[in-house]
């Protein structure tokens, strides 16, 4: 029962990490290595809005979401658009931005374990004999609502449909009047906002530390590779596979093996099925 409850929570957390990354990659084929940095950055924006500006919590959250979305869009519009289509340069440029953001945060003085966000709801309950705090349940509920919302967004709204069209065939989308540069910016803003949302939901469970930016990035990449890069549905399934695998190793092997699971999953996927569980990476197969 422990495994079931905490496995689910952990899986939803992983899916939240990965969703923004998968969205950006799916739409504009951009591996956004600044994803983890945006995650940490939005955590510190929320913290600063709460403690330095003294805003109420909901307002601070809203500010962090908007600010991160704008920062993501700006990063794309002024830096990444120049190396569009060159995979290696995209990785180097976005990773450089990640380093600049994370080390910049460290430089400004946000160091150590002292920064925390308050949980949304105090208190705890028991499910089948397992103690769970309300905030973790809320994470699962909001996560599920978010997946459903995103599913509906990409099926029933004009922009969502355009994003899906572009993800499948950029040029065909252009022929129908969809502006691919604009959509790439929208995707990046949305992906950054998703990173911020993940941060706001998950950071109250621990400390805001700069190092977690790198971990979040690795976990997001692991989930996307296992799920099939570019497939949102695959990412959610992969999050559950890795999430439960992590909890199982924690229970039976030890906490320090947790990070290894994600890396092992990347290696195994690349050996057994390079396109991932639900990947449509046909170019890769053709090239081999």
């Amino acid at each position: 029962m422990d495994i079931l409850v905490y496995g689910t929570i952990n899986s939803v957390a992983l899916a939240l990490y990965a969703l923004g990354f998968a969205l950006v990659y799916g739409v504009s084929r951009l591996p956004n290595f600044a994803h983890g940095a945006l995650y940490v950055l939005s955590g510190f924006i929320t913290w600063s809005a709460l403690n330095t500006l003294g805003l109420p919590y909901p307002l601070a959250i809203l500010l962090a979401l908007l600010a991160t979305a704008v920062i993501g869009a700006v990063i794309y519009q002024f830096v990444l658009i120049r190396v569009r289509g060159m995979e290696i340069s995209e990785i180097i440029a976005s990773y450089a931005i990640a380093l600049a953001i994370l080390e910049g945060i460290r430089y400004v003085g946000f160091r150590g374990m002292t920064y925390t966000l308050p949980v949304f709801l105090e208190g705890r309950t028991t499910i089948g004999g397992v103690m769970v705090d309300y905030h973790r349940l809320l994470v699962v509920a909001i996560g599920a609502a978010l997946f459903a919302g995103l599913w509906a967004f990409t099926r029933f709204t004009r922009v969502g449909l355009a994003l899906r069209g572009m993800a499948q065939d950029e040029r065909a989308a252009m022929m129908l009047g969809i502006d691919s540069d604009l959509m790439a910016v929208v995707a990046m803003a949305l992906g950054s906002a998703l990173a911020a949302l993940a941060a706001i939901l998950l950071l109250p469970l621990g400390n805001i530390v700069v190092e977690s930016g790198y971990n979040v990035l690795i976990l997001a990449i692991a989930v996307c590779i296992v799920g099939g890069i570019g497939s949102w549905f695959g990412a959610v399934i992969a999050a559950f596979i890795i999430g439960f695998a992590q909890i199982l190793t924690v229970v039976y092997l030890g906490t320090h093996f947790q990070m290894m699971v994600a890396l092992l999953a990347i290696i195994l996927t690349l050996i057994l099925k390079p396109s991932g569980l639900f990947g449509q990476q046909k170019e890769l197969e053709e090239r081999v």
């Binding site: 099926r155 449909l161 065939d169 065909a172 129908l176 009047g177």
Partner: peptide
């Protein structure tokens, strides 16, 4: 000016109706 390209380039992972809906962007 709308091009209907050679080899059709449909959105293969979308349904027929979704293809038409994506086409209705403008």
């Amino acid at each position: 000016i709308v091009l209907c390209p050679e080899r059709r380039r449909l959105f293969k992972e979308s349904t027929v109706l979704e293809n038409l809906k994506i086409g209705a962007y403008l």
